[in-house]
Simulated assay, not measured.
Amino acid sequence: MSIVELPAAVRRGLPALAVALACVGIAAPSATAEPAPGCAPATATTAVPAAVPVLDWSENLGYDRQGNLWVSRLYRNEVQRYDGAGQLTARVPVEYPGAVRLGPDGLMYAVYGDAPTSVVRPGGVVRFDPAAADPRPEIFASGFTMPNGAAFDADGALYVASATGVIRIGRDGAVDAGWSERAKLNANGIAIDDGTVYLTSNGGPLGRVLRFPVTDPERRTVLADLSSALPGVPDFADDLLVDETGAVYVTTLSGQLVRIDRNGQSCRVLASEPMTSAVAVPDRPGELLAGTERGAILRIQLAP
């Protein structure tokens, strides 16, 4: 299998390899090169530290209506709730959780089975009441291979990015098989804005960001191909979000937060540690939180 074909689960083993190399005196490459010049730099501080590095891997982030932050702890097999002061207030058991998203009904939806085991033990989506003192998950949809990203459209349908393609799920939990069959491609992170689906894809080449109309998943175009810190080497594009201006922000394996405008022009706004996901902080324009493979949650302040 070539590096272009590496699945997300293999990529998740790379931080451990980097640690091992460091232990024997071999340094892993650092993220120092920009995909393109032009962006004012962002700043980052630690919002929530990692109690146990890598074990606390923060795969994904989402906010509920009360302003609580939800964090998918991939290797702890749980989704955790944090209050505004950064205090842990709840743990929800979810097997290998991926994206965690607020649904139109006020419930939180979390992808599960974001691991190679989903080939024989299929993954899916659970949902739970985020306001409960002890939230209990229930299965909403299942039968997916390595589901990772998730996003809701304006009508409340849920789109799950998986190793076999994007899956469209109605508000009743039923899979739209016809639409999903038209969206067969390598899919990782997903966001939907103004009727357009934005997708990170690493199936060939690495680091590709695609977009297509919600109504026509076969009409895909390349928004950008991201480069890494190594000249001529593509990056692994993980999750993404779309801000209020229509700019797309992508987190990458090499530790970059990349901004892509509507015309596909990209630039690095932050060089940090490998980041898995990012979410806009409610009511705080220009501020993001980012998950990391180490497990810490970064608070990122974008330049005005």
Results as ranks from 00 to 15, higher is better:
Glu5Val: 00
Leu14Ala: 06
Pro15Gly: 09
Ala20Cys: 01
Cys23Val: 00
Ala27Gln: 12
Ala27Asn: 04
Pro29Glu: 13
Pro29Gln: 10
Ala40His: 06
Ala40Ile: 00
Thr46Pro: 04
Val48Gly: 01
Val48Asp: 01
Val48Gln: 08
Ala50Gly: 05
Ala51Arg: 14
Val54Arg: 09
Trp57Gly: 01
Tyr63Asp: 02
Leu69Asn: 06
Leu74Ser: 11
Tyr75His: 15
Gln80Asp: 14
Gln80Trp: 10
Arg81Glu: 05
Arg91Cys: 06
Val92Trp: 02
Glu95Val: 15
Ala99Met: 05
Val100Tyr: 03
Val100Lys: 03
Ala110Arg: 00
Gly113Pro: 04
Ala115Trp: 05
Ala115Gly: 04
Asp134Ser: 14
Glu138Met: 12
Ile139Cys: 05
Asp153Gln: 06
Ala154Pro: 03
Ser162His: 08
Ala174Arg: 14
Asp176Glu: 05
Trp179Ile: 09
Asn186Lys: 01
Gly189Trp: 04
Leu206Ser: 12
Phe212Met: 14
Phe212Glu: 11
Phe212Ala: 10
Asp216Met: 02
Arg220Val: 14
Leu241Ser: 12
Asp243Trp: 10
Glu244Phe: 08
Thr245Pro: 01
Val248Gln: 04
Val248Asp: 04
Val250Trp: 08
Gln256Thr: 11
Gly264Ile: 03
Cys267Glu: 07
Arg268Leu: 07
Ser272His: 13
Ser277Cys: 08
Ala278Phe: 11
Ala280Lys: 14
Val281Gln: 08
Gly291Ile: 09
Thr292Lys: 11
Thr292Ala: 11
Ala296Ile: 00
Ala296Arg: 13
Gln301Ser: 12
